[in-house]
Amino acid sequence: MLDAVIIVLRETLEASLLVSFLFVYSNHFSVNKKWMFLALVSGIAFAVLVALQLSEISDLYDGTGQEVLFITVLLALSLLIQWINFIVIMPNYLKSNQQLLKILFSSIIVLAISLEGAEIIVFFQSSLANDNHFHANLLGSILGLGIGISAGAVSYYLLNQLANTGVIICLFLLVVVSAGMASQAVSYLMQADFIESGYPVWNTNTLIDERSVIGQLLYALIGYEATPSFTQVIVYFSYVLIPSASFIYFKIFSVRKN
């Protein structure tokens, strides 16, 4: 049962934290949340569709269909999140882009829920075919889903309470979440042999084991990888440094102007 809890929790946590950050943004920048609720529902519908078609999808492109799908979704997600961060960072740009933000928020929610949801549904399908553990897996899945959603809700209320500080934390976390997604996309590029797989640059497994609870949590939150390849490191840090540099630049710039 514990395995089921962890499998479902891991996927749920990634999506629910992301959604909670976007909800905090939408409150702070007064973006209408109606679309986001619609996006939640369509995300679940897409997840079911992807899960049901995954056999066919996997066979596409010489057996790399699954990777192609995941790479596309992960890169789209990471770029859309970065786009939002840039809108939020640039002070004058924000006011005229409420409509755009609404579309970006909703697209991210649809993509994230389809991706994570599909994996949960495939796991669930697998449990259905496995009589011995079905009840334990069902209970575990419900627990995992519940804990994951609760974690998202708690994160939303906490960050919302913090007002401006909460938004800055959201900004930081969204930057690292998108960096983690881009790094994961690179890992899939290697798995499908689209790019050469390099040797790991370092191994931090002795410091924080990727399998431990902290390791898993860090994976969901900042895309922690104990043995990243050189390309993954470069992509990750570009994703972190570019918005960070812009943030510092625009902050100093706006302070000087005032």
């Binding site: 995954l54 996997s58 699954q66 495939v122 697998s126 890992s187 798995q191 797989s197 043995t227």
Partner: peptide, 18 residues
């Protein structure tokens, strides 16, 4: 985790992993 690989293999199907 050691190989940084993760791939769903559906029932009665095969998967290629590099």
């Amino acid at each position: 985790y050691e190989l940084n690989r993760e791939k769903l293999i559906m029932g009665e199907r095969k998967a290629n992993i590099f």
